[in-house]
């Protein structure tokens, strides 16, 4: 398809398609989560709008668009208004480097994973702006917690993500995917190291996505809704969209790093479908954890990161490095 378009049009069309697909997917992922959570809690979940509630996300989006936009009198207006957008952009940008199939992606950078991680932790800027600009004590506390949490969990997150990078020997996401071709070569099946790294990566993902048990930013039983307590209408929708986009992006990344991306049985064109299925699997795993754990306290979260997760991932990384060096020098 790329050959049929004039050269200058491609950089516009490709992001346009990806963006729309992502937004569409994100809206439906919320429905998936609600249905999944409902099943866990012996409920039915959304049911009335459309067949089995299939139109619920659209109804929700329409409702949010029509809501009155309330800005608190004491809010720092420019910061308050800009925050949702600053929050959303990095969450969308992370999809830029994701290859959905060989050669199917917006930009398969040679430092893809670095870009992904760097951009995804940029969301903290928007988050802190929201917390600060709202001029609300709950929001401020939440923003302070957010900074704490991002600083503590980005390191284990990166270290865990570096394990597949080392095993594949490339920062390029498509290279990492190609390195896992064939079911048994998925990095999650790599003896010991693979499983541990996957575990650490999922824990760090939970923290990076602010999901229970690490959702101290939102913490509605203490901070009502955390940094977005003052947002309503479309601004709230943007924040929500960003949060879920981040989650979907992280699920794709986990599927790519550990579950072999588009690798699967069937013809090659089924690749993106496999990738999607694996990402949804990761998403549901995270959702499952979310709906079965209680939240832990902010100091416990930090202790868990600095005293357990960080040393553990560091040791894991060193082990992987040793193994890789030993292997390339003619070990196995």
């Amino acid at each position: 398809m790329a050959e049929m378009l004039p050269g200058w049009l491609l950089p516009i069309v490709a992001p346009f398609i990806v963006l729309n697909v992502v937004v569409g997917m994100v809206t439906y992922v919320t429905l998936l989560e609600r249905k999944f959570a409902a099943r866990m809690q012996s409920r039915i979940g959304p049911y009335r709008v459309g067949y089995h509630g299939l139109l619920q996300p659209i109804a929700d989006a329409l409702k949010l668009m029509m809501k009155e936009d309330i800005v608190p009198t004491a809010a720092d207006r420019p910061i308050y208004n800009l925050a949702p957008i600053v929050f959303l952009i990095p969450c969308m940008l992370i999809f830029a480097t994701l290859p959905f199939a060989p050669g199917l992606g917006v930009a398969d950078l040679n430092i893809g994973i670095l870009f992904f991680i760097a951009v995804s932790s940029m969301e903290i800027v928007g988050l802190f702006m929201a917390g600060w600009g709202s001029n609300n004590k709950y929001a401020l506390l939440s923003a302070m917690r957010a900074v704490n949490q991002i600083i503590s969990y980005d390191l284990p997150y990166i270290f865990a993500a570096l394990v597949p990078v080392m095993l594949a020997g490339s920062l390029k996401l498509s290279d990492i995917a190609v390195a896992q071709e064939g079911f048994i070569h998925w990095f999650v099946f790599y003896p010991v190291i693979g499983q541990l790294a996957f575990l650490a990566f999922i824990v760090a993902t939970l923290a990076a996505e602010n999901r229970v048990p690490f959702d101290i930013l939102e913490a509605e039983s203490e901070l009502v809704a955390g940094f977005r307590v003052e947002y309503s209408g479309m601004k709230f929708a943007l924040i929500q969209l960003g949060e879920y986009a981040h989650m979907v992006g992280s699920s794709f990344l986990a599927a790519l790093l550990f579950l072999g991306a588009w690798d699967g049985p069937g013809p090659e064109w089924l690749g993106p479908a496999w990738f999607l299925l694996k990402a949804i699997f990761i998403f549901l795993l995270v959702t499952w954890i979310r709906w079965s754990f209680v939240r832990i306290r902010v100091d416990q979260i930090l202790a868990l990161s600095w005293k357990v997760l960080l040393p553990a991932t560091l040791v894991l990384l060193i082990c992987t490095a040793t193994l890789v060096v030993w292997r390339t020098s003619g070990g196995i």
Binding site: A37, M40, Q41, S42, R43, V212, P213, D215, E218, A219, E220, S221, R290, W291, S292, F293, V294, R295
Partner: peptide, 21 residues
């Protein structure tokens, strides 16, 4: 109590709904 600790959008809500049942 579990909802206080676990959040209305988390594991606490799961226990809460079971208890309400």
């Amino acid at each position: 109590w579990c909802m206080d600790m676990g959040g209305a959008l988390g594991g606490g809500a799961t226990i809460f709904l079971y208890c309400i049942r």
